[in-house]
Amino acid sequence: MQKEKCAHTWQMVNVTPCFIITEKCYHCGKISTYFSTGHNPPMEEYREGEHYWNFMESAQSIHFDLKCTKCNMLVKFDELLGVKMCTGCDENCEANTLLKKLEPERTWVYIAFGCLPVNEKKQLSKEKISILEEYFNQRRKSSKSRIKVISHEIVSNIEDCYAEVIKDVDMLSLTLPEK
């Protein structure tokens, strides 16, 4: 006997404010990104394996998991650093091809990105990406337009991608707006 499959209804849970920290290794040029719950990133260069990381930037964001309100299934999103909207910044990128194809029906491509460097840190699975897509589309309810969530692995060069990241930069800066 096969169990009846749950048509999950996802809800955002375990929402934790945090900082996305960006560091760069000047020896190999690689960029490292990760979550931090405090605002005390290591400011001095430090060594990790073959890398010498230097602090570059921090931005406020959130970490969250998804939970089904019907069957209570919990899906952890520890590998998800954030989502960004593909704006078609690179003609030769597959994300752009997808956007061009889906744009007429108002389906928008969002890139779920994990921690950098891509091949040195655990990345989101295909299943989790489709759950994320399901979640955001459930939130759009009645809307005819849809969201397509893709993995950053599809992006031809994630370090050169100008997609619009959903995060809060400069929340601590005091730059006065122009009068």
Binding site: I20, K24, I31, T33, E57
Partner: peptide, 8 residues
Amino acid sequence: DQRALGFG
């Protein structure tokens, strides 16, 4: 390249 990531 950090600007590309949206940082800066």
